[in-house]
Amino acid sequence: MKFSLGAAQFFWPKQQVEDFYQQAKDSSADIIYVGETVCSKRRELRDKDWLALAQDIATTGKQVVISTMTLLESPAELQVLKRLCNNGDLLVEANDLSAVQVMHELKLPFVVGAAINCYNLATLKVLLKQGMTRWVMPVELSGDWLKQLLDEAEDEGIRSQFEAEVFSWGYMPLAYSARCFTARSEDRPKDDCQYCCINYPQGRRMNSREGERVFVLNGIQTMSGYQYNLINEMADMQAMGVDVVRISPDSELALQKLDDFRAQLTSAKQYPLDGKAECNGYWHKIAGMSVQ
């Protein structure tokens, strides 16, 4: 089993991004995803900065993957996407079918990210034909769903053609909109957002009027209010053949989580989850925000 650090979802100042990845270079991660996946207006790092950062991390011997945007709406965004896809040697994570199309045209392998709707065997087969080498399961799917699908892939004789990765810790991306909810929270339209996401390095909490943490607002993205935590499901994941466990960074804390998850492989222990801050419901086929 390998452990990955997903692309950082929040908008951080350039220095913070660089500091974070300096630490990540020394972390236990086998795979590190880098890049802007949420909003093309976030330009603390330009595409060439991301590629330089990625090349720098790659010197450690870790696999580095360029993560790409999820919601692409303009030709300018497609241009940036094409530059990132055609980067020379780094693997790319496609988070929209546009990236699948571009990578297929380039005849290059790619990772299918969790925001692409791949729910079944027939879809896996189409994506494999396009060049997919790793599949990240959509966050709303359960352990049972995954097991059944991986078993079907085995029966079909295609299981060895791709790795399966599971989003296992962190705030889950749940939705993408044209509207920027962070700008809205400051009563601004998106076109005059003043890049206000940078003031919320862990997003903005959106609670119910009873104080329940419902969602986290992160620009045009809506995230889970609780952190997903599958640390107690490591044995199950291993048994069903999950290849990569993804930790989604919200801060340096994520680097510690990489170690905690990895330690489960050698000396498993049961972690009690805090139902007011963590959840694992999706894995157990119940409401995502619940704990079982």
Binding site: Y119, E140, L141, L174, A175, F215, T222, A287, M289
Partner: peptide
């Protein structure tokens, strides 16, 4: 629908059931 349709799991996050599933 204010989210990019087909890419919104808010409903399943709260109830376990979404438009997709």
């Amino acid at each position: 629908c204010i989210m990019s349709e087909g890419r919104c799991y808010l409903s399943s996050y709260m109830t376990g059931e979404s438009p997709n599933t």
